[in-house]
Design a binder for these strands. Structure first.
Lengths: 192, 192
DNA sequence: TATTTACACTAGCGCTTGCTTGGTTACTCT
DNA sequence: AGAGTAACCAAGCAAGCGCTAGTGTAAATA
Protein backbone atom coordinates (compact mmCIF):
# COMPACT_ATOMS: atom_id res chain seq x y z
CA UNK A 1 0.00 0.00 0.00
CA UNK A 2 1.96 2.97 -1.26
CA UNK A 3 0.65 6.32 -0.20
CA UNK A 4 2.45 8.47 -2.73
CA UNK A 5 3.97 6.05 -5.09
CA UNK A 6 4.83 6.76 -8.69
CA UNK A 7 5.93 3.27 -9.70
CA UNK A 8 5.51 2.44 -13.36
CA UNK A 9 3.05 -0.28 -12.43
CA UNK A 10 0.90 2.19 -10.59
CA UNK A 11 1.05 4.62 -13.47
CA UNK A 12 -0.19 1.97 -15.86
CA UNK A 13 -3.00 1.01 -13.50
CA UNK A 14 -3.96 4.67 -13.25
CA UNK A 15 -4.14 4.90 -17.02
CA UNK A 16 -6.44 1.89 -17.20
CA UNK A 17 -8.60 3.27 -14.41
CA UNK A 18 -9.00 6.55 -16.28
CA UNK A 19 -10.27 4.68 -19.30
CA UNK A 20 -12.84 2.75 -17.28
CA UNK A 21 -13.95 5.86 -15.38
CA UNK A 22 -14.68 7.55 -18.70
CA UNK A 23 -16.49 4.54 -20.11
CA UNK A 24 -18.67 3.83 -17.10
CA UNK A 25 -18.40 6.80 -14.79
CA UNK A 26 -16.65 6.63 -11.44
CA UNK A 27 -19.60 5.40 -9.42
CA UNK A 28 -20.52 2.60 -11.80
CA UNK A 29 -16.95 1.38 -12.07
CA UNK A 30 -16.49 -1.35 -9.46
CA UNK A 31 -13.19 -2.39 -7.96
CA UNK A 32 -13.81 -5.79 -9.56
CA UNK A 33 -14.08 -4.21 -13.01
CA UNK A 34 -10.90 -2.25 -12.41
CA UNK A 35 -9.07 -5.36 -11.25
CA UNK A 36 -10.19 -7.40 -14.24
CA UNK A 37 -9.08 -4.68 -16.66
CA UNK A 38 -5.72 -4.72 -14.91
CA UNK A 39 -5.42 -8.50 -15.05
CA UNK A 40 -5.43 -8.99 -11.28
CA UNK A 41 -7.99 -9.91 -8.63
CA UNK A 42 -9.95 -7.25 -6.81
CA UNK A 43 -8.14 -7.82 -3.52
CA UNK A 44 -4.75 -7.18 -5.09
CA UNK A 45 -5.86 -3.74 -6.17
CA UNK A 46 -5.62 -2.48 -2.60
CA UNK A 47 -1.93 -3.17 -2.56
CA UNK A 48 -1.45 -0.31 -5.01
CA UNK A 49 -4.16 2.07 -3.83
CA UNK A 50 -5.44 2.58 -0.32
CA UNK A 51 -9.02 2.77 -1.54
CA UNK A 52 -11.14 3.52 -4.60
CA UNK A 53 -11.03 7.24 -3.87
CA UNK A 54 -7.25 7.24 -4.18
CA UNK A 55 -7.49 5.83 -7.68
CA UNK A 56 -9.71 8.71 -8.71
CA UNK A 57 -7.33 11.22 -7.14
CA UNK A 58 -4.39 9.60 -8.93
CA UNK A 59 -6.13 9.83 -12.28
CA UNK A 60 -6.99 13.49 -11.85
CA UNK A 61 -3.61 14.46 -10.44
CA UNK A 62 -1.79 12.80 -13.31
CA UNK A 63 -3.89 14.64 -15.88
CA UNK A 64 -3.66 18.03 -14.24
CA UNK A 65 0.09 17.84 -13.66
CA UNK A 66 0.49 17.03 -17.31
CA UNK A 67 -1.66 19.93 -18.46
CA UNK A 68 0.31 22.31 -16.28
CA UNK A 69 3.63 21.08 -17.63
CA UNK A 70 2.61 21.27 -21.26
CA UNK A 71 1.11 24.75 -20.91
CA UNK A 72 4.17 26.13 -19.11
CA UNK A 73 6.51 24.64 -21.66
CA UNK A 74 4.48 26.01 -24.57
CA UNK A 75 4.33 29.49 -23.07
CA UNK A 76 8.05 29.48 -22.37
CA UNK A 77 8.89 28.54 -25.92
CA UNK A 78 6.58 30.90 -27.79
CA UNK A 79 6.98 34.54 -28.72
CA UNK A 80 5.98 37.35 -26.40
CA UNK A 81 3.22 38.88 -28.52
CA UNK A 82 -0.13 38.62 -26.73
CA UNK A 83 -1.82 37.26 -29.82
CA UNK A 84 0.71 34.46 -30.19
CA UNK A 85 0.49 33.63 -26.51
CA UNK A 86 -3.29 33.45 -26.65
CA UNK A 87 -3.19 31.11 -29.60
CA UNK A 88 -0.46 29.06 -27.96
CA UNK A 89 -2.44 28.66 -24.77
CA UNK A 90 -5.56 27.57 -26.63
CA UNK A 91 -3.54 25.09 -28.64
CA UNK A 92 -1.84 23.71 -25.55
CA UNK A 93 -5.19 23.31 -23.86
CA UNK A 94 -6.61 21.22 -26.67
CA UNK A 95 -3.39 19.30 -27.03
CA UNK A 96 -3.48 18.02 -23.46
CA UNK A 97 -7.23 17.60 -23.58
CA UNK A 98 -6.95 15.09 -26.39
CA UNK A 99 -3.62 13.40 -25.83
CA UNK A 100 -4.60 12.75 -22.24
CA UNK A 101 -8.30 12.66 -22.93
CA UNK A 102 -9.40 10.06 -20.41
CA UNK A 103 -7.76 11.72 -17.45
CA UNK A 104 -9.18 15.11 -18.39
CA UNK A 105 -12.71 13.88 -18.95
CA UNK A 106 -12.52 12.35 -15.49
CA UNK A 107 -11.15 15.60 -14.05
CA UNK A 108 -13.90 17.63 -15.71
CA UNK A 109 -16.87 15.42 -14.96
CA UNK A 110 -16.01 13.40 -11.87
CA UNK A 111 -14.30 16.07 -9.80
CA UNK A 112 -17.18 16.16 -7.34
CA UNK A 113 -16.62 12.53 -6.39
CA UNK A 114 -13.32 13.47 -4.76
CA UNK A 115 -13.32 13.55 -0.99
CA UNK A 116 -12.67 17.00 0.53
CA UNK A 117 -8.99 16.32 1.32
CA UNK A 118 -8.07 15.21 -2.17
CA UNK A 119 -10.19 17.95 -3.68
CA UNK A 120 -8.40 20.65 -1.66
CA UNK A 121 -5.01 19.34 -2.70
CA UNK A 122 -5.90 19.11 -6.37
CA UNK A 123 -7.63 22.47 -6.41
CA UNK A 124 -4.25 24.12 -6.02
CA UNK A 125 -3.00 22.42 -9.14
CA UNK A 126 -6.07 23.48 -11.09
CA UNK A 127 -5.83 27.03 -9.81
CA UNK A 128 -2.23 27.22 -10.96
CA UNK A 129 -3.34 26.16 -14.41
CA UNK A 130 -6.15 28.67 -14.56
CA UNK A 131 -3.78 31.40 -13.43
CA UNK A 132 -1.79 30.84 -16.62
CA UNK A 133 -4.97 31.41 -18.60
CA UNK A 134 -5.95 34.58 -16.79
CA UNK A 135 -2.47 36.06 -17.30
CA UNK A 136 -2.62 35.39 -21.03
CA UNK A 137 -6.14 36.82 -21.27
CA UNK A 138 -5.06 39.91 -19.34
CA UNK A 139 -2.26 40.56 -21.78
CA UNK A 140 -4.61 40.17 -24.72
CA UNK A 141 -7.07 42.60 -23.15
CA UNK A 142 -4.32 45.12 -22.37
CA UNK A 143 -3.13 44.92 -25.98
CA UNK A 144 -6.68 45.56 -27.19
CA UNK A 145 -6.85 42.23 -29.01
CA UNK A 146 -10.06 41.23 -27.34
CA UNK A 147 -12.62 43.04 -25.27
CA UNK A 148 -14.86 42.35 -22.31
CA UNK A 149 -14.46 41.39 -18.69
CA UNK A 150 -11.28 39.40 -17.96
CA UNK A 151 -13.15 37.03 -15.73
CA UNK A 152 -16.01 36.44 -18.15
CA UNK A 153 -13.78 36.06 -21.18
CA UNK A 154 -11.61 33.41 -19.58
CA UNK A 155 -14.65 31.48 -18.35
CA UNK A 156 -16.31 31.60 -21.74
CA UNK A 157 -13.16 30.54 -23.54
CA UNK A 158 -12.43 27.71 -21.12
CA UNK A 159 -16.03 26.59 -21.33
CA UNK A 160 -15.97 26.49 -25.11
CA UNK A 161 -12.69 24.58 -25.08
CA UNK A 162 -13.63 22.10 -22.38
CA UNK A 163 -16.94 21.37 -24.02
CA UNK A 164 -15.12 20.12 -27.12
CA UNK A 165 -14.60 16.76 -25.41
CA UNK A 166 -18.31 16.27 -25.92
CA UNK A 167 -18.42 16.57 -29.68
CA UNK A 168 -14.98 16.85 -31.25
CA UNK A 169 -13.39 13.86 -32.92
CA UNK A 170 -9.62 14.40 -33.13
CA UNK A 171 -9.31 11.66 -35.76
CA UNK A 172 -11.39 13.77 -38.16
CA UNK A 173 -10.06 16.15 -40.79
CA UNK A 174 -9.76 19.12 -38.46
CA UNK A 175 -6.73 19.15 -36.18
CA UNK A 176 -6.88 20.36 -32.58
CA UNK A 177 -4.65 23.27 -33.58
CA UNK A 178 -7.16 24.31 -36.25
CA UNK A 179 -9.87 24.18 -33.65
CA UNK A 180 -7.92 26.37 -31.25
CA UNK A 181 -7.12 28.88 -33.97
CA UNK A 182 -10.76 29.12 -35.03
CA UNK A 183 -11.86 29.82 -31.49
CA UNK A 184 -9.26 32.54 -31.07
CA UNK A 185 -10.26 34.03 -34.41
CA UNK A 186 -13.87 34.01 -33.32
CA UNK A 187 -13.21 36.26 -30.35
CA UNK A 188 -10.58 38.47 -31.99
CA UNK A 189 -12.24 41.15 -34.14
CA UNK A 190 -8.88 42.42 -35.37
CA UNK A 191 -8.10 39.18 -37.11
CA UNK A 192 -11.11 39.24 -39.46
CA UNK B 1 -47.32 2.36 -12.34
CA UNK B 2 -48.00 5.00 -14.97
CA UNK B 3 -45.97 4.68 -18.13
CA UNK B 4 -46.52 8.17 -19.50
CA UNK B 5 -48.23 10.00 -16.73
CA UNK B 6 -48.16 13.74 -16.22
CA UNK B 7 -50.04 13.90 -12.93
CA UNK B 8 -49.20 16.86 -10.71
CA UNK B 9 -47.89 14.49 -8.08
CA UNK B 10 -45.50 12.92 -10.52
CA UNK B 11 -44.36 16.33 -11.70
CA UNK B 12 -43.55 17.34 -8.15
CA UNK B 13 -41.67 14.10 -7.56
CA UNK B 14 -39.71 14.71 -10.74
CA UNK B 15 -38.72 18.14 -9.53
CA UNK B 16 -37.48 16.76 -6.23
CA UNK B 17 -35.60 14.00 -8.03
CA UNK B 18 -33.83 16.57 -10.20
CA UNK B 19 -32.63 18.38 -7.12
CA UNK B 20 -31.22 15.22 -5.58
CA UNK B 21 -29.63 14.11 -8.83
CA UNK B 22 -27.77 17.42 -8.98
CA UNK B 23 -26.71 17.28 -5.34
CA UNK B 24 -25.50 13.69 -5.34
CA UNK B 25 -25.30 12.57 -8.92
CA UNK B 26 -27.64 9.99 -10.40
CA UNK B 27 -25.68 6.91 -9.38
CA UNK B 28 -25.19 7.95 -5.79
CA UNK B 29 -28.83 8.89 -5.36
CA UNK B 30 -30.58 5.83 -3.94
CA UNK B 31 -34.28 5.12 -4.26
CA UNK B 32 -34.43 5.40 -0.49
CA UNK B 33 -33.01 8.93 -0.59
CA UNK B 34 -35.50 9.86 -3.29
CA UNK B 35 -38.38 8.42 -1.30
CA UNK B 36 -37.35 10.20 1.87
CA UNK B 37 -37.11 13.54 0.07
CA UNK B 38 -40.60 12.90 -1.26
CA UNK B 39 -41.98 11.97 2.13
CA UNK B 40 -42.89 8.42 1.17
CA UNK B 41 -41.31 4.98 1.58
CA UNK B 42 -39.01 3.56 -1.05
CA UNK B 43 -41.48 0.92 -2.16
CA UNK B 44 -44.15 3.50 -2.91
CA UNK B 45 -41.86 5.18 -5.37
CA UNK B 46 -42.40 2.39 -7.84
CA UNK B 47 -46.06 3.19 -8.01
CA UNK B 48 -45.17 6.41 -9.82
CA UNK B 49 -42.15 5.30 -11.83
CA UNK B 50 -41.48 1.90 -13.30
CA UNK B 51 -37.84 2.05 -12.24
CA UNK B 52 -35.04 4.45 -11.34
CA UNK B 53 -34.17 4.94 -15.00
CA UNK B 54 -37.63 6.30 -15.69
CA UNK B 55 -37.16 9.00 -13.06
CA UNK B 56 -34.01 10.15 -14.81
CA UNK B 57 -35.77 10.19 -18.17
CA UNK B 58 -38.66 12.17 -16.69
CA UNK B 59 -36.29 14.78 -15.27
CA UNK B 60 -34.48 15.26 -18.55
CA UNK B 61 -37.62 15.25 -20.68
CA UNK B 62 -39.23 17.88 -18.49
CA UNK B 63 -36.21 20.16 -18.75
CA UNK B 64 -35.72 19.78 -22.46
CA UNK B 65 -39.39 20.31 -23.32
CA UNK B 66 -39.26 23.49 -21.30
CA UNK B 67 -36.15 24.78 -23.03
CA UNK B 68 -37.69 24.13 -26.41
CA UNK B 69 -40.89 25.96 -25.51
CA UNK B 70 -39.14 29.00 -24.09
CA UNK B 71 -36.76 29.31 -27.03
CA UNK B 72 -39.56 29.01 -29.60
CA UNK B 73 -41.68 31.57 -27.81
CA UNK B 74 -38.79 34.01 -27.50
CA UNK B 75 -37.87 33.69 -31.17
CA UNK B 76 -41.50 34.17 -32.23
CA UNK B 77 -41.82 37.32 -30.24
CA UNK B 78 -38.58 39.04 -31.14
CA UNK B 79 -37.64 41.13 -34.13
CA UNK B 80 -36.36 39.61 -37.34
CA UNK B 81 -32.88 41.16 -37.35
CA UNK B 82 -30.20 38.46 -37.07
CA UNK B 83 -28.41 40.35 -34.31
CA UNK B 84 -31.54 40.56 -32.20
CA UNK B 85 -32.34 36.91 -32.79
CA UNK B 86 -28.85 35.85 -31.77
CA UNK B 87 -29.04 37.83 -28.57
CA UNK B 88 -32.54 36.54 -27.92
CA UNK B 89 -31.47 32.95 -28.34
CA UNK B 90 -28.51 33.36 -25.99
CA UNK B 91 -30.75 35.03 -23.41
CA UNK B 92 -33.39 32.32 -23.72
CA UNK B 93 -30.73 29.67 -23.28
CA UNK B 94 -29.46 31.13 -20.04
CA UNK B 95 -32.98 31.84 -18.86
CA UNK B 96 -34.01 28.18 -19.03
CA UNK B 97 -30.64 27.06 -17.81
CA UNK B 98 -31.09 28.91 -14.55
CA UNK B 99 -34.83 28.90 -13.96
CA UNK B 100 -34.84 25.15 -14.51
CA UNK B 101 -31.29 24.65 -13.38
CA UNK B 102 -31.58 21.25 -11.74
CA UNK B 103 -33.20 19.56 -14.69
CA UNK B 104 -30.64 21.03 -17.08
CA UNK B 105 -27.63 20.12 -15.01
CA UNK B 106 -28.94 16.58 -14.97
CA UNK B 107 -29.54 16.66 -18.72
CA UNK B 108 -26.03 17.97 -19.35
CA UNK B 109 -24.08 15.73 -17.00
CA UNK B 110 -26.12 12.59 -16.51
CA UNK B 111 -27.27 12.02 -20.05
CA UNK B 112 -25.07 8.99 -20.43
CA UNK B 113 -26.87 7.16 -17.61
CA UNK B 114 -29.98 6.95 -19.79
CA UNK B 115 -30.70 3.56 -21.27
CA UNK B 116 -30.55 3.43 -25.08
CA UNK B 117 -34.33 3.56 -25.57
CA UNK B 118 -34.85 6.68 -23.47
CA UNK B 119 -31.75 8.26 -24.92
CA UNK B 120 -32.98 7.79 -28.48
CA UNK B 121 -36.33 9.32 -27.65
CA UNK B 122 -34.86 12.32 -25.89
CA UNK B 123 -32.21 12.87 -28.54
CA UNK B 124 -34.94 14.03 -30.89
CA UNK B 125 -35.99 16.70 -28.46
CA UNK B 126 -32.45 17.88 -28.02
CA UNK B 127 -31.84 17.89 -31.77
CA UNK B 128 -34.92 20.05 -32.27
CA UNK B 129 -33.51 22.53 -29.80
CA UNK B 130 -30.09 22.59 -31.40
CA UNK B 131 -31.71 23.12 -34.78
CA UNK B 132 -33.08 26.42 -33.50
CA UNK B 133 -29.55 27.46 -32.62
CA UNK B 134 -28.04 26.49 -35.93
CA UNK B 135 -30.74 28.45 -37.80
CA UNK B 136 -30.03 31.56 -35.76
CA UNK B 137 -26.29 31.18 -36.23
CA UNK B 138 -26.74 30.70 -39.97
CA UNK B 139 -28.65 33.95 -40.23
CA UNK B 140 -25.98 35.77 -38.26
CA UNK B 141 -23.28 34.36 -40.51
CA UNK B 142 -25.21 35.28 -43.67
CA UNK B 143 -25.64 38.83 -42.36
CA UNK B 144 -21.90 39.05 -41.74
CA UNK B 145 -22.38 39.62 -38.02
CA UNK B 146 -20.05 36.83 -37.07
CA UNK B 147 -17.54 34.75 -38.94
CA UNK B 148 -16.30 31.18 -38.96
CA UNK B 149 -17.72 27.76 -39.57
CA UNK B 150 -21.42 27.44 -38.70
CA UNK B 151 -20.88 24.13 -37.01
CA UNK B 152 -17.91 25.27 -34.98
CA UNK B 153 -19.44 28.56 -33.95
CA UNK B 154 -22.59 26.95 -32.62
CA UNK B 155 -20.62 24.34 -30.72
CA UNK B 156 -18.33 26.92 -29.19
CA UNK B 157 -21.20 29.17 -28.20
CA UNK B 158 -23.25 26.35 -26.73
CA UNK B 159 -20.18 25.11 -24.88
CA UNK B 160 -19.48 28.51 -23.38
CA UNK B 161 -23.13 28.92 -22.36
CA UNK B 162 -23.56 25.42 -20.94
CA UNK B 163 -20.35 25.69 -18.96
CA UNK B 164 -21.78 28.65 -17.07
CA UNK B 165 -23.64 26.24 -14.78
CA UNK B 166 -20.23 25.42 -13.36
CA UNK B 167 -19.27 28.90 -12.20
CA UNK B 168 -22.07 31.43 -12.62
CA UNK B 169 -24.12 32.50 -9.62
CA UNK B 170 -27.43 33.99 -10.83
CA UNK B 171 -28.00 35.62 -7.46
CA UNK B 172 -24.92 37.78 -7.98
CA UNK B 173 -24.87 41.32 -9.41
CA UNK B 174 -24.74 40.20 -13.03
CA UNK B 175 -28.02 39.06 -14.55
CA UNK B 176 -28.27 36.12 -16.97
CA UNK B 177 -29.25 38.59 -19.69
CA UNK B 178 -26.04 40.56 -19.10
CA UNK B 179 -24.10 37.36 -19.38
CA UNK B 180 -25.75 36.44 -22.67
CA UNK B 181 -25.15 39.92 -24.08
CA UNK B 182 -21.48 39.85 -23.11
CA UNK B 183 -20.97 36.54 -24.85
CA UNK B 184 -22.65 37.79 -28.01
CA UNK B 185 -20.58 40.96 -27.87
CA UNK B 186 -17.45 38.87 -27.50
CA UNK B 187 -18.00 37.11 -30.80
CA UNK B 188 -19.42 40.06 -32.70
CA UNK B 189 -16.61 42.34 -33.92
CA UNK B 190 -19.06 44.89 -35.28
CA UNK B 191 -20.44 45.70 -31.87
CA UNK B 192 -17.18 46.93 -30.42
C1' DT C 1 21.90 -17.92 4.15
C1' DA C 2 18.40 -15.35 6.43
C1' DT C 3 15.20 -11.52 6.00
C1' DT C 4 12.53 -8.28 3.92
C1' DT C 5 9.81 -6.39 0.27
C1' DA C 6 6.56 -6.33 -3.62
C1' DC C 7 2.85 -8.30 -5.55
C1' DA C 8 -0.54 -11.46 -6.05
C1' DC C 9 -4.04 -14.82 -4.35
C1' DT C 10 -8.50 -16.91 -1.87
C1' DA C 11 -12.30 -16.26 0.85
C1' DG C 12 -15.67 -13.76 2.66
C1' DC C 13 -17.68 -10.04 5.94
C1' DG C 14 -20.92 -6.50 6.61
C1' DC C 15 -23.59 -3.56 4.27
C1' DT C 16 -26.37 -1.31 0.54
C1' DT C 17 -28.51 -1.59 -3.70
C1' DG C 18 -32.81 -1.57 -6.92
C1' DC C 19 -36.83 -3.65 -6.84
C1' DT C 20 -40.94 -6.97 -5.52
C1' DT C 21 -44.60 -8.65 -2.85
C1' DG C 22 -48.91 -8.63 -0.50
C1' DG C 23 -51.80 -5.91 1.80
C1' DT C 24 -53.96 -1.33 3.65
C1' DT C 25 -56.02 3.29 3.47
C1' DA C 26 -58.61 7.16 1.47
C1' DC C 27 -61.16 9.01 -2.00
C1' DT C 28 -64.28 9.16 -6.10
C1' DC C 29 -67.98 7.63 -8.96
C1' DT C 30 -72.22 5.18 -9.79
C1' DA D 1 -73.79 1.10 -0.17
C1' DG D 2 -70.57 -0.93 -3.18
C1' DA D 3 -66.96 -0.91 -6.70
C1' DG D 4 -62.98 0.90 -8.47
C1' DT D 5 -58.67 3.16 -8.15
C1' DA D 6 -54.66 5.90 -6.84
C1' DA D 7 -51.43 6.17 -3.27
C1' DC D 8 -49.12 4.28 0.15
C1' DC D 9 -46.63 0.90 3.65
C1' DA D 10 -43.90 -2.97 5.95
C1' DA D 11 -40.95 -6.48 5.01
C1' DG D 12 -37.60 -8.49 2.62
C1' DC D 13 -35.00 -10.85 -1.40
C1' DA D 14 -31.12 -11.56 -4.44
C1' DA D 15 -27.34 -9.39 -6.09
C1' DG D 16 -23.64 -6.58 -5.80
C1' DC D 17 -20.73 -3.34 -3.32
C1' DG D 18 -15.98 -1.70 -1.10
C1' DC D 19 -12.82 -3.55 1.53
C1' DT D 20 -10.12 -6.82 4.91
C1' DA D 21 -7.60 -10.77 6.65
C1' DG D 22 -4.55 -14.08 6.05
C1' DT D 23 -1.45 -16.67 2.91
C1' DG D 24 1.88 -17.85 -0.90
C1' DT D 25 5.91 -16.81 -3.63
C1' DA D 26 9.63 -14.91 -6.17
C1' DA D 27 13.02 -11.35 -6.25
C1' DA D 28 15.89 -8.03 -3.84
C1' DT D 29 18.64 -6.98 0.22
C1' DA D 30 21.51 -7.86 4.34
Amino acid sequence: MNVMNASPRRKELTRLAAQLFVQEGFDRTTVRMLAQEMGIKSGSLFHHFKDKQEILAAVIEEGTQNALMIARKALNECAAEPEVRLRTMARAHLETLFTDRNAHVVALFEWRRLDPVASAHLSHLRDAYEALWVAVIDDALAAGLIHGDRFLVSRFVLGALNWTVRWYDPSGPRSPDDLADELVAMIMPTSV
